[in-house]
Simulated scan of single mutants.
Amino acid sequence: MTRFQEKVALVTGGRSGIGSAIAQRLRSEGARVFTAQRGEDQEFEAISVDFTVPEKAAHIIDTVVERAGRLDVLVNNAGIMQEALVEEMSMADWERTIAVNLTTPFALIKAAMPHLRATAGTIVNVGSIEGLGSNPKHAAYCASKAGLHGLTRAVAIDHSGEGVRCNAVAPGWIDTALNVEFIKNLPDSKSYRERIGTIHPVGRTGSPEEVASLVVWLASAEASFVTGQVWTIDGGRMAKLSLP
């Protein structure tokens, strides 16, 4: 398929995990893909940036437009997570999580909007099921992802009439390299892998490529009547009640 022929996409955090799968899928369908993250990316045209500094967002967008002449797709995927109880978390850690997961996506959308308006472009934000529920010690992460979901709806309301659609995906447990390595290093990794599968009605965890398929569909013209939505992709986990 060439759904993105002659289109330009920016994927933040596109060097690894879900972001890499999204970038690869967009490229396979014809897009010119830029990624933005700390350091280099050998696969794509890369922009090195510190997402804890939201003021850098305009530079990222300007760089893409200067090099490619346009912007059609913005995927806000970069994110961080820190574990701590509210009373244990420092203000610096809280602010860093909010900056990377929420404020920088806002700043990128703000800087990108004139260019997306010109191309009738699309925005896809990578949220989380933790924007809908919570795991222990994830206060800052949950707050940032819930905020990103809310931002998604607000941007859609304000700009869909101008031709710019905005949606989000909320992944559950996805087998990124980081998660796979985490399980591998557990004392009883096989038992944990089986146990983590049982919390999903489909009987397994998800893959980055499955998330990428949803993101790319939302960014494509096939989803032209879809905006302001948060699409849960979690193998049914959030729909499953605990045993009575």
Rank of each mutant, 00 (worst) to 15 (best):
L74M: 03
T119F: 03
S90W: 07
G127T: 01
A84V: 02
H149S: 08
F106L: 15
N185K: 15
K110P: 01
E66S: 15
K184V: 00
A140V: 02
R153P: 00
L71K: 03
G172V: 01
A78N: 06
A107D: 04
E83Y: 14
A99Q: 12
A84W: 04
M91D: 13
K110L: 11
A78C: 09
V169I: 15
N125V: 08
V180G: 05
H138P: 00
A112G: 11
A84F: 09
L132R: 06
G163H: 12
N135T: 06
N77W: 00
L108N: 11
L74K: 11
A92S: 01
A146S: 14
T176W: 01
C142A: 13
T122D: 14
T103L: 12
I109L: 02
L148H: 10
M91H: 07
V155C: 08
R165L: 12
S128W: 01
A111R: 15
G127Q: 00
L151W: 00
A168N: 04
D72Q: 13
R70A: 13
T104N: 06
A168G: 05
T176M: 05
V169T: 13
K110Q: 15
L116G: 12
A111T: 09
V64S: 12
T103Q: 10
N167I: 00
A143V: 14
A84P: 02
M113R: 10
A170G: 08
H115Y: 15
I183W: 10
R153K: 15
V75C: 12
A177V: 05
I61Q: 11
D93C: 01
I174Q: 08
G150K: 02
A92K: 10
D93S: 12
A120H: 14
L108P: 14
I80A: 04
E181F: 00
K137L: 13
S144D: 11
D93A: 14
